[in-house]
Simulated scan of single mutants.
Amino acid sequence: MKISYEQAGVSIDNANAFVNAIKPLVKQTFNANVLGGIGSFSGAYKMPSHFKNPVILGATDGVGTKLRLAIDAKKYDTIGQDLVAMCVNDLICNFATPLFFLDYYASAKLEIEVAKNVLCGIVEGCKKAGCALIGGETAEMPGMYAQGDFDLAGFAVGMAEEEEIDRREFVKNGDILLALPSSGLHSNGYSLARKVLFESLKMNFEDKIGDEKLIDILLKPTRIYVKDFLKLKPYINALAHITGGGLVENLPRIFPQGIGCIIRKHHLNTPEIFYKIAEAVAENEMYKSFNMGVGMVLVVSAKNVSKVLENSDAFIIGEVVINEGVNLE
Rank of each mutant, 00 (worst) to 15 (best):
K52M: 07
N53F: 12
T78M: 04
N53C: 09
V55F: 05
A106S: 13
V55Y: 03
R68T: 15
Y105V: 10
Q81Y: 05
F41L: 12
C87H: 04
C93G: 10
Q81D: 08
S49P: 01
L99H: 04
L102C: 14
Y104H: 09
F100N: 15
F41E: 13
K74V: 04
P48G: 07
I79V: 14
V84Q: 04
R68V: 11
K74W: 01
V63F: 14
Y105R: 11
F95D: 03
A106M: 13
I71Y: 07
T60S: 09
I92H: 02
A96E: 01
Q81T: 14
I92S: 01
D72G: 10
G58K: 01
F100H: 15
G43L: 09
L57P: 00
G58L: 01
A106N: 12
F100Q: 13
G62Y: 02
A44C: 08
L102W: 11
D61Q: 03
F100D: 14
L99C: 10
A70G: 10
A73Q: 05
F101L: 12
A44Q: 09
T78L: 05
P98A: 04
N89R: 08
T60E: 03
L67C: 09
Y45A: 03
T60G: 05
D61F: 02
A106H: 08
V55M: 14
C87M: 07
F95S: 07
P98K: 02
D103H: 15
Y76L: 01
N53T: 14
L69T: 06
A96H: 01
A73R: 05
D90W: 10
F101H: 12
